[in-house]
């Protein structure tokens, strides 16, 4: 029984260690492993029904992460407001993002579980938006550049041509680029294409349907290092590196080809020899007799 318990504790610790190294980024130990943090970086959600301001739960994070978060970090809630402006008008609050701020034991803070509730469009806003649609002007939004001490150094502004948004409702898509608690930039626009030329189209439903993601930086792929080859070479030094066995032709082609040529040459020469000469050659051995025999025939011919 006791052994089983120890075993169980060990497993839990191993799991914890494994997950911990997964998140270890700026700490003292730097893993060689290529970190793929899709799970963390893309906490996505589709918030529906701008009128009600009710956000749908974001994709639930994987279990291991949850366990880790319980173990090592402290949690707090943060909220930051989205403001919008119609054309050149001033910015006014349009909705609230809320998220959980995680403080890792070794310093950096990150946001997870982003939720968004958009305020309902007022009648005035609707009119303004319609005007934007008529004029093909910009609908602008802004966010603070630091979620802890808004507005940070400056606001993050993004704009879109108003005519890109209307579908059935007003569809919008946020990708918020984060670095710790700083917002770098927000990619704002329709969730799909915005074909050009932009047609005037009024939405059927005057409410926003929001899609939103948090995105932190990707890690660059590491330069491939071919250490294997080097160690192989070092090991190989002791043994004599045998050249691969080559075929007969590969070894001796340089002798074979001239030989072949010589043979060919000889054969063709032999073939080209005129028949008389050939005969003469054959006759050489029996010259005496042949001469005696031929002499009279030749004479006879004449």
């Amino acid at each position: 029984m006791a052994g089983e318990k120890v075993w169980w504790i060990l497993t839990v610790m191993a799991v914890l260690l494994a997950t911990a190294s997964h998140h270890h980024r700026a700490g003292a130990f730097q893993s060689d492993e290529l970190l793929i943090e899709q799970d963390d970086d893309l906490v996505g959600a589709i918030g529906g029904g701008g009128g009600g301001g009710v956000g749908v739960d974001p994709v639930s994070p994987p279990r291991s992460r949850k366990r880790y978060s319980e173990a090592a970090e402290s949690d707090s809630k943060v909220q930051f407001t989205l403001e919008h402006a119609f054309g050149d008008s001033d910015f006014s609050p349009a909705g609230t993002f809320s998220a959980r701020l995680k403080t890792w034991s070794h310093g950096p803070q990150t946001l997870t579980k982003l939720r968004f509730s958009r305020n309902a469009l007022t009648e005035v806003d609707k009119e303004k938006f319609e005007k934007l649609l008529q004029e093909d002007d910009f609908y602008r939004i802004r966010l603070p550049s630091n979620v802890l001490s808004p507005p940070g150094r400056d606001y993050i502004v993004a704009s879109i041509k108003a005519r890109c948004l209307p579908r059935d409702s007003l569809d919008e898509h946020f990708v918020i680029h984060m670095d710790g608690v700083n917002i770098l930039s927000v990619n704002y626009g329709p969730p799909g294409a915005c074909p050009y030329p932009r047609q005037l189209k009024l939405p059927a439903k005057w409410s926003f349907k929001s899609h939103y993601y948090l995105k932190s930086t990707d890690l660059a792929p590491r330069t491939p290092v071919f250490t294997e080859e080097i160690t192989l070479g070092e090991n190989g030094e002791a043994e004599v590196v045998k050249p691969p066995e080559r075929s007969f032709w590969a070894k001796y082609w340089m002798y074979a080809i001239p030989l072949g040529l010589v043979v060919m040459n000889a054969v063709t020469q032999a073939m080209n020899m005129p028949p008389e000469e050939q005969a003469g050659g054959q006759a050489a051995s029996q010259q005496g007799a042949a001469a005696a025999q031929r002499g009279p025939t030749a004479v006879r011919r004449r």
Binding site: S159, H177, G189, T217
Partner: peptide
């Protein structure tokens, strides 16, 4: 950190970190 930014809309198309 390297960025590819679309200068019309200000969208970050790609962001990548080289550590060390």
């Amino acid at each position: 950190v390297v960025y590819l930014i679309d200068t019309i809309t200000g969208r970050i198309l790609h962001r990548m970190t080289h550590q060390g």
